[in-house]
Design a protein around this nucleic acid. Structure first.
Length: 445
RNA sequence: GCCCCCAUGGUCUAGCGGUCAUGACGCCGCCCUUUCACGGCGGAGAUCGUCGGUUCGAAUCCGACUGGGGGUACCA
């Protein structure tokens, strides 16, 4: 099996493209085949080297390694010209100066359902002669789809200057790369007969096809940069893990008879078959990805999670705070807002201070300060015992004591466990923050 | 307009002629509990887009319609 991923570098790699890449990669790894990367950069206006770099970057981050390529379509111009000549010599093409308007006029005359047939001219663009009959696309996901040739326009396969167009180039490139399975988005289904016609004119065998349903945004509209985390780049910035993204994307449009939702990449490779890909378009649901990402995050283990968090935040010495914060975050991006106070001091949340550092709260806080100052060991169990002692002595609800302490050291009402946090801070820092809160609160009051 | 694809709770998905229609996210409740989470338990939520047909029996097969999507470029 030889499959390929053939993005056009007209922007960042979006999750739709990422999923297509993933499915191709899974197929190749499942079958022990070859995964080829080809860059379709023949769009002279929109393709840029920076975009090519972005795509390679995205694939690297997703850990979808390719075995051959990247093949640049733009570097195959000579070969394309050669094949074009073969087609001309075989009488499969003709020159035509007919424009889009001419095609429309033709349909006005003959009926909208009839494909355009031009008259051969001395020069102009090159059109492929569509023969009589029909072309059947045998799709691994959708079954057979028949396209009657009479509805198909004679497609332009090369410009007047000889530069070739997409439907011609893909066919030739897939043929030359000996691609056995063409797996791509459903937006290509309607163009497949044109490519099949090129192959037929060349007398070549056709590869197997599989057209994946398209991905939509959360609002059901087409996915774009405007809607949610649409690009791979953005997913990375928002703190998602590549392994979670692979799992999520694999299940977005593919299902097993098995009910498992968390499926490791190894298992995906083992179980994935393109025949089981769904025919329905799917919506990208960030909430489900977040949930899944949290699952993966916690499975990483403290050491590895710390490594990733340090790489993500660019900070060192995070291990202790990672340990106490890990069960409360779903993405790498969630970490700092939750646990940053352990490193950079309390956050500033006036409404939290107002709510918890009132007279009552300050009194509790002062008593906590006493208890903590005289503690022998300053570890989580000891701190907990001390705080609970204060609760008991004051005869109040636990939160009447704990929340003021939380606000004092974190600045907000949301944080990791309170005694774990105190222990991570250490006695000196903890007392100093409590003192700070007491002083500050007094000034406010 | 023309050609093509698709249709199971809000979202993803199982189902392949006979099930109380599966599981997950999300949502609600309870438990756990120092906040928020995590975890556990339970719940609400689907006339299987509509209509017709085939059949003793249709989510499952056929057709029409409706809705959504894609293509229709000298873009990819």
């Amino acid at each position: 099996m030889r499959v390929r991923f053939a993005p056009s570098p007209t922007g960042a790699l979006h999750i739709g493209g990422a999923r297509t890449a993933l499915y191709n990669w899974l197929m190749a790894r499942h079958a022990g085949g070859t995964f080829v990367l080809r860059v379709e950069d023949t769009d002279r206006e929109r393709s840029t080297p920076e975009n090519v770099g972005q795509i390679l970057d995205a694939l690297r981050w997703l850990e979808l390694d390719f075995d051959e390529g990247p093949i640049l379509q733009s570097e195959r111009a000579e070969r394309h010209a050669e094949v074009l000549r073969t087609l001309e010599e075989g009488g499969h093409t003709y020159h035509s100066t007919a424009t889009a308007q001419d095609v429309r006029a033709y349909k006005d005359r003959h009926g909208a359902e009839w494909g355009f047939r031009g008259e051969p001219e001395a020069d102009g663009a090159i059109r492929l002669r569509v023969p009589e009959g029909a072309t059947v696309v045998h799709d691994l996901i959708r079954g057979d789809t028949t396209f009657a040739h009479e509805h198909l326009d004679d497609p332009v396969i090369a410009r007047a200057d000889g530069s070739v167009l997409y439907n011609f180039a893909v066919a030739v490139d897939d043929l030359d790369a000996a691609i056995t399975h063409v797996v791509r988005g459903e937006d290509h289904l309607s163009n497949t007969p044109k490519q099949l016609l090129v192959l037929a004119a060349l007398g070549a065998d056709q590869p197997a096809y599989a057209h994946l349903p398209l991905l939509h945004g959360p609002d059901g509209k087409k996915l774009s940069k405007r809607h949610g985390a649409a690009s791979v780049q953005e997913l990375r910035e928002r703190g998602f893990l590549p392994e979670a993204v692979r799992n999520y994307l694999a299940l977005l449009g593919w299902g097993d008879t098995d009910d498992e939702t968390i499926v490791s990449t190894d298992d995906l490779v083992r179980r994935f078959t393109v025949e089981r890909v769904s025919r329905n378009p799917a919506r990208f649901d960030v909430d489900k990805l977040r949930w899944m990402n949290g699952r993966y995050l916690r499975e990483l283990g403290e050491e590895e999670l710390t490594r990733r968090l340090e790489a993500y935040t660019g900070r060192d010495g995070l291990r202790p705070s990672v340990v106490i914060a890990q069960e409360k975050i779903q993405t790498l991006a969630d970490f700092w807002p939750l646990a940053g106070f352990l490193h950079d001091g309390p956050a500033d949340d006036p409404s939290a201070r107002e709510r918890w550092l009132d007279e009552e709260g300050r009194a509790a806080l002062a008593e906590v300060r006493e208890a903590l100052a005289t503690l022998d060991a300053f570890d989580a169990p000891s701190v907990e015992a001390a705080l609970r002692g204060v609760v008991e002595r004051r005869g109040v609800k636990a939160k009447q004591v704990f929340q003021p302490v939380r606000v004092a050291i974190a600045g907000t009402t949301v944080s990791p466990g309170i005694w774990e946090s105190l222990a991570v801070l250490g006695r000196d820092e903890a007392l100093s923050r409590i003192d700070g809160a007491l002083g500050q609160a007094v000034r406010i009051a």
